[in-house]
Amino acid sequence: MTKDNLSGKVTTQICLEIPDKTNPFICAEQFLAGYNTLSLATSSTFVDVLLLLFNLELPSEADRHLLETLMIGLINPGPRHPATKAAMASGLSKTNAEHILPIAASTIGGERGGAKEVFYAHHFIKNHLDEDVQNLVCTRLHDSAERFAPGFGTHYGNRDSYIESLSLTIQKHCKTGKHFDWVMALTSCLHEQNSGLLDVGLAAAIFCDLGIKDRESIGLYQFIRLPGMLAHGLEQTRRPVSDVPLLEDENYVYTP
């Protein structure tokens, strides 16, 4: 086999690199889904290009605004979120700074309230979109973890007030699609049971409206949530480890 006939080439629809005339390893010009990256840099927003990477087309102004609103609303899960806590515990204990982002991303990848649940919520919404929400609420029960379905349920036993406010803000200020509208109708029915929309369900609904596929939803959710977690984790690297001592023995109950 010659070096020009390698055993299989990586294939991509996303990125074209034009080689430098003197060195084929060096990229002289880059195109993202056909658009020159430097032209995008001077004429598009970050969110435009983010959606371009996943959908291979630049979004409409309304879609860009929708995703950007969601991204800001979800930019920081807050210092009490398990994934942020993982980042903060790492930062406080002087973990290498470059590990904080992957630690947070990995933690929020879980199937219970994390990115994997976005995947399941994406499927749930797509699969039930044609169903009557009242009928669905009457025929389906909450599980033992208080989930009505992936992306829907209770948060610490109640409706998630912040996500409820964010979803209403999106409804008021953005042009949404049929998935989000159906989710809001379902959420409204769930309120009678003191249950509602969760962060992962909201993200899944909007990803569906934006044409983001199921697996892509996982990574995009992790990405959207990361900035706040990263900032919290890095902030803790500058705090003394004595800020948060290990839990005292009397509050650690061990019963083998």
Binding site: T12, E17, I26, G34, Y35, L58
Partner: peptide, 20 residues
């Protein structure tokens, strides 16, 4: 090499200038 990656996406095209 840059050409060791097979690109199958849209051909190079101008970035639209108008609001989409």
């Amino acid at each position: 090499y840059c050409t060791d990656v097979r690109y199958t996406g849209p051909s190079p095209r101008p970035v639209p200038t108008k609001n989409r």
